[in-house]
């Protein structure tokens, strides 16, 4: 019952955040007008007067960006929960353990390949981006499998090995990504901070469309695995005793979690710490039951990243602060706090 109220609160929060942040920018739009324009699109006419300029800015500039922030935030948060379930550790953030870097490396490779091989050149926007998303997904998948293999021994995840494997993979993937971006001619590639710090600056309805299926799939399908994720927390053997096909569960979690990470890295670069702080905040309020944790984290992640994006595009306007800076400033204290909390476990492992 309590969890239901938390979910309702988070839904209301998300709606409020979307309406407010769509109104913030060089041209301020009052919330009433934002609502009027949105509801007008749905065929409900509010008695609020706004001019066409407002509608244009809102529909073509602000909204795609806000929706993109919602999708990226939701996707990163839910894959954070899934990864933490898989590794049985609240520190397993996709960016921290190298999965996002793996995705960005594969994204950069694809862009280089496409621009250097005319045969691969696809003019149409959507198929090109779907291809990019699929490949970054595969890159994310490969890195998570690698980290998973490295960090486990005898059915247990070694925390120290997990974090060190993340450090190593991050270093390697980022070095290779930098190598490619600094030598590339492609305009899109030369923006190195995009890959390392993330940005939602490329938002458009097309980007939203390419992102949508990759984020919706985990949001719709992971809750079906909530019970299994709970049982998995007891241990792999214990989950099997409870009738769960552990091997299949692990495959499903890796695929669903990396879908969202891969696609969001492809369109927004690496945005760290969202998958870490959001589940942590939700857990501290409503516990670790994945039946509520997954949904609540998705909602909070969407709100939080939308707010972070408002911050990043207004604080030094007209320039933009890379959004990764905002999430890192918010996320590092949480990360350190979790590390201190887990010190005992770290000590016993090493």
């Amino acid at each position: 019952m309590r969890n239901k109220w938390i979910t309702i609160t988070l839904i209301v929060l998300l709606i409020a955040v979307v309406i407010l942040s769509a109104g913030i920018g060089a041209m301020k739009i009052p919330p009433a007008q934002v609502m009027a324009v949105l509801l007008n699109k749905l065929g409900i006419h509010l008695p609020v007067i706004y001019d066409e300029g407002v509608e244009n800015v809102l529909l073509h500039i602000r909204l795609p960006r806000v929706v993109m922030a919602v999708l990226v935030g939701a996707g990163l948060a839910i894959s954070g929960v899934a990864m933490q379930g898989l590794f049985r550790n609240p520190l397993a953030d996709p960016a921290l353990i190298g999965i996002s870097s793996g995705a960005s490396l594969s994204a950069v490779l694809v862009i280089v390949l496409i621009s250097s091989l005319p045969a691969l050149h696809i003019d149409n926007y959507l198929p090109r981006y779907y291809l990019l998303n699929v490949i970054t997904f595969l890159g994310a998948c490969a890195t998570s499998l690698l980290v998973f293999r490295i960090s486990r021994s005898g059915g247990k995840t070694m925390l120290v090995t997990l974090l060190l494997a993340g450090v190593a993979l991050n270093a390697l993937c980022r070095a290779l990504t930098d190598l490619i971006t600094t030598t590339a001619n492609d305009e899109q590639l030369r923006n190195a901070t995009f890959w390392s710090m993330g940005s939602l600056g490329g938002a458009s309805w097309n980007v939203v469309l390419t992102l949508l299926p990759f984020v919706l799939a985990p949001i719709l399908m992971l809750p079906g695995l909530a019970k299994s994720l709970n049982a998995f927390a007891l241990g792999e053997n214990e989950a099997a005793y409870l009738g769960i096909n552990v091997k299949r569960l692990k495959t499903k979690i890796i695929i669903l979690a990396t879908l969202a990470v891969g696609a969001s890295v492809a369109v927004a670069g690496i945005i760290g710490f969202v998958g870490l702080i959001v589940p942590h905040m939700v857990r501290s309020v409503s516990g670790n039951d994945h039946r509520s944790l997954l949904l609540n984290s998705t909602l909070l992640g969407a709100s939080l990243l939308t707010l972070a994006d408002v911050f990043s595009r207004t604080i030094i306007a007209p320039a933009e602060l890379p959004i990764g800076i905002v999430t890192a400033v918010l996320g590092t204290p949480v990360f350190v706090m979790l590390l201190i909390k887990q010190k005992k476990q770290l000590r016993t492992v090493s």
Partner: peptide, 9 residues
């Protein structure tokens, strides 16, 4: 033995 860090009631 069970996994550590079981944050459940």
């Amino acid at each position: 033995q069970y996994a550590q860090g079981l944050q459940f009631n």
